[in-house]
Design a protein around this nucleic acid. Sequence first.
DNA 1: CTTGGAATGTCAACAAGGCTGACTTAAACT
DNA 2: AGTTTAAGTCAGCCTTGTTGACATTCCAAG
Lengths: 165, 165
Amino acid sequence: MSDPSTGENLLYLTDEQLRQGIEAMFFAYRGFTADPDRILADMAYGRAHHRAVHFINRAPGTTVNNLLAILGVTKQSLNRVLRTLIEDGLVESRVGNADKRERHLYLTDDGRALEQRLSDAQRARMRAAYRAAGPQAVAGFRQVLEAMMDPDMRRRYLALKESGS
Amino acid sequence: MSDPSTGENLLYLTDEQLRQGIEAMFFAYRGFTADPDRILADMAYGRAHHRAVHFINRAPGTTVNNLLAILGVTKQSLNRVLRTLIEDGLVESRVGNADKRERHLYLTDDGRALEQRLSDAQRARMRAAYRAAGPQAVAGFRQVLEAMMDPDMRRRYLALKESGS
DNA sequence: CTTGGAATGTCAACAAGGCTGACTTAAACT
DNA sequence: AGTTTAAGTCAGCCTTGTTGACATTCCAAG
């Protein structure tokens, strides 16, 4: 349990261990998105719609600009998705009070119903994984993921986490 | 440290905790792919090329069918990517000895050079995250990811892991 | 030896969801 | 008044996924 060069056990930082972590991320992410994808495939929606609905639900009244920054896409790309969601009556766009240039986004009842369906499916898999791995593993999982984010995204993630708990 | 209903502390399984884990996966995966994506953007390649190159490097001589199953895409989709890689001299396709229908895939020197560049970038971020989180967190990270995979993908992942260590 | 099935490759068409660039409208700020 | 900002829109492009149809090659079973 000791490393000859540093006195610490750094075997977990070998290229082989890192490669295994990379592959684990790849395969796990596929599982992570699989269940919502199956639900969305039946409708005219895709993963982009899921993400929009998720974060609007998470932060009701968020502005388009804010959502743009969270999702990390261009406004043209988001707009295409948002337009269909509004047309289909899943999302409502309200003009801002203080600043009337802004549009604040909210889920309708139908939107909330879809969000619920999607996140129930995704949470079920997550819950199974968490349960199988145990609380200590989950804590480590969260730590590594946080450390892997870009600083900007980490700030946004932590702000969301703060606001939700 | 006790749960009234079960006697265990199951607070890590609340919907809020699961939602945070879901968002962590989303933001972290963006960071995970960001560095290779930047390198690939300069060339005529994308993430699909990276994945193909990664797994061919990982299992030299793999057949197209095998790669298909690992990547989880259609042969038409993979073929488009593979064709450009072969045309550009990054991948070599050799007819099988035993079964001449099969094509065995190998990286050329140029292919290995690109793979190295991409995986160096990706590993650097992974290494920083691992180091920041520590060995115990990394173990938990791996456990949760494994539990999150579809059974088929877990088998493939474990087989790869086995063969590499 | 022939035939059926498997592995591969290819062509065409399509869709989702990214992107850039250019431009408009309305509101707010200076 | 002029500039900046938020949002939306149009057009066009790219990557990467999909289906369906079809050809080729080869192995293996009848």
